[in-house]
């Protein structure tokens, strides 16, 4: 994969091997072994295997995989909370993997921030001082950092809780503090490691909406880790699926559903309702000579579910357009086939 020059994050051939003599694995025949074989032969765990991807500015990039697939290790390698074994991580063209300790601290203080599954709040500090922590260690004065902290407190809907201690808050509220803390330094990139996995389903839905709202308003580039495909599809522009440390496929939700690269990915996406993911483009058939082209026109990027009503109500095939060109037509048949496949009752 060649990285585009304007990518915010460009990860190239990233490896992380845990265990004795971890540095003797990459670049040798051992690297070809499966995770299980490598463990049996050397006692090393290849938590991240040869991962490459780009994240565009303002994109929400989701990394998704089962527990143990290496997601947390990957995201910690990107921020060097875990030292990568090899490979490069370019942030705006600068290799984080090579940054000096001092430079790394600077980057952490200004350019990117993290949100953790178990919040990682400082129990001995009030909400406001938790949020102001990164400003505090950066030498921002008390007044200024509290003023900024109050801004983000309002942004994440925690107004009135600034003097509370973390243990006095519910899980959802604690993670709002986590989000506020990550936003306080106004970073360019946010890394979120399963930020909502520890929360109840209802709260989780609120928080997903909250993150999408923040993303819409602030336009941060995000790397979002989850093990929940529904969540991945809800928040992500593109999704990388990980398995045993390697990225199996990167693509939009539609790519994964419509064109899975292997049975593993297909299996994953089996339970996702196609009509919620696929666009008209994906199910349109080419225009035939006998097609009646008097029906309504819809853009090819429309999700099937959103267009279903219109298609079912129309007497004529719906024309799928890209710009001004008609790229195909969709009839009731395609829609009904898709919907009945989603609901195999």
């Amino acid at each position: 994969m060649t990285s585009s020059p304007d990518a915010t994050i460009a990860v190239h051939s990233l490896w992380k091997v845990f265990g004795p003599k971890a540095d003797t694995v990459v670049g040798t025949d051992l690297a070809e072994l499966s995770r299980a074989d490598l463990l049996a032969q050397t006692g090393c765990v290849a938590a991240v295997r040869d991962v490459s991807f780009d994240v565009a500015p303002g994109e929400v990039f989701v990394v998704m995989g089962l527990s143990g697939s290496g997601k947390s290790t990957l995201v910690r390698c990107l921020t060097r909370l875990i030292e990568p074994t090899s490979g490069s991580v370019l942030l705006d063209g600068e290799d984080i993997a090579q940054a000096s300790p001092k430079r790394l601290r600077e980057l952490r203080r200004t350019k990117f921030s993290m949100v953790f599954q178990h919040f990682g709040l400082l129990p001995h500090r009030r909400v406001i001082d938790n949020i102001a922590y990164s400003l505090e260690i950066n030498g921002v004065g008390r007044e200024a950092r509290h003023a900024r902290a109050r801004e983000v407190i309002e942004l994440v809907g925690l107004t009135g809780y600034d003097q509370h201690y973390p243990e006095q808050l519910s899980g959802g509220m604690q993670q709002r503090v986590g989000l506020a803390r990550a936003l306080a330094v106004d970073p360019e990139v946010m890394f979120l490691d399963e930020p909502f996995s520890a929360l109840d389903p209802l709260i989780r839905r609120d928080m997903q909406a909250e993150v999408m709202r923040l993303h819409r308003d602030l336009g941060k580039t995000m790397v979002f880790i989850t093990h929940d495909l529904a969540e991945a599809m809800k928040v992500g522009d593109r999704i990388a699926i990980m398995r045993d440390g390697a990225v199996v496929q990167v693509g939009t939700a539609e790519d994964l559903v419509a064109r899975p690269v292997d049975d593993y990915v297909a299996d994953f996406t089996r339970d996702i309702p196609r009509s919620h993911v696929l666009t008209l483009q994906a199910i349109a058939r080419p225009v035939r000579g006998d097609d009646d082209l008097t029906g309504p026109r819809l853009p090819g990027t429309t999700i099937v579910r959103d267009a279903a009503r219109a298609i079912l109500d129309s007497q004529h095939p719906v024309q799928v357009v890209s710009g001004d060109d008609v790229v195909g037509v969709v009839t009731k048949d395609e829609v009904l086939r898709l919907i009945s496949a989603d609901d195999p009752a």
Binding site: L81, E106, R108, M114, F116, H118, F119, G120, I137, N138
Partner: peptide
């Protein structure tokens, strides 16, 4: 987690 978070903030 608090230690890791503090480290991640530089």
């Amino acid at each position: 987690g608090a230690l890791e978070a503090a480290r991640s903030m530089g």
